[in-house]
Computed example of a mutant assay.
Amino acid sequence: MEIKVSEVANLPTKYGDFLIQCFAEGCKEHLVIMSKELPKIPAVRVHSECLTGDTLGSKKCDCGEQLEFALNYIANHGGMVIYLRQEGRNIGLLNKVNAYALQDKGYDTIEANHQLGFSADERTYEIVEFILDFYGIKKIKLLTNNPKKIESIKDVAIVERIPIKVEPNPHNENYLKIKKEKMGHLL
């Protein structure tokens, strides 16, 4: 598949001043938000889009807080957030809202996905290695709790895993428990 790459632009934010670049993969347009200078071994967060958490501040998940943690970390230590357009573990916004409705009825996040005909996690990460290679990055410090993300990066050395610590709240305690117990997240 052909991947189109945008120009680089400045992105001043409440977290710091970054650069932004877009990688279009078919109909999905992924973003890279990066410090103006990349260290020799940059910190990298691979973050999948979560409109409800990232933009609306949903307390049902920890996505928005993980993104904020990563942007603050990158602002202070250098690196990048690779923002993948894979809403709702790549089931799309409509299905994610339907999964939320099933969760309201007592299903956990994995059971809700299964009820809708999806696996627990439909995300893929092939574009990540393309992006890292595009910037000539061979070694990273990976900001993640997700072992699937660690396993997916094969051609770049992960010299350190930086855990993302988020305080649970009454709305996401079970969600975090399921991520740890059923998905193997390193919480």
Results as ranks from 00 to 15, higher is better:
V5L: 03
V5I: 09
A9I: 13
A9D: 11
P12F: 03
T13H: 01
K14Q: 10
K14A: 10
Y15D: 11
G16S: 09
C22F: 10
F23A: 00
F23I: 02
A24R: 09
E25F: 07
G26D: 02
C27V: 13
K28A: 06
K28I: 00
H30M: 08
E37R: 12
P39Q: 08
P42E: 06
P42C: 07
P42Y: 04
V44Q: 09
V44K: 08
V46S: 05
V46R: 01
H47C: 00
H47T: 03
E49S: 06
E49H: 05
C50F: 00
L51Y: 12
T52R: 06
G53T: 01
L56I: 13
G57D: 06
G57E: 04
K60V: 14
C61W: 00
C61K: 02
D62A: 04
E65T: 06
L67G: 01
A70D: 04
A70F: 01
L71N: 01
N72G: 13
Y73T: 14
Y73V: 14
I74C: 03
I74E: 05
G78H: 12
V81L: 00
I82H: 04
Y83L: 02
G88H: 01
G92A: 08
L93M: 14
L94W: 14
N95A: 10
K96W: 03
V97R: 12
N98M: 15
Y100W: 09
L102P: 13
K105Y: 06
K105E: 14
Y107H: 15
E111L: 12
N113Q: 05
N113I: 06
N113Y: 06
H114Y: 15
G117D: 12
F118A: 10
A120T: 07
D121P: 10
E122P: 07
R123G: 07
V128F: 04
L132I: 06
L132D: 07
D133W: 00
F134R: 03
Y135I: 02
G136T: 05
K138H: 12
I140G: 09
K141L: 07
L143R: 05
T144V: 04
P147C: 09
K149W: 04
K149N: 06
I150Y: 11
E151F: 11
I153Q: 07
D155I: 11
A157L: 15
V159D: 15
V159A: 14
K165P: 13
N169Q: 09
N169R: 08
N172D: 02
N172F: 07
Y175M: 05
L176D: 12
I178W: 04
K179Q: 04
K180T: 11
K180P: 15
E181H: 12
E181C: 10
K182N: 13
M183G: 10
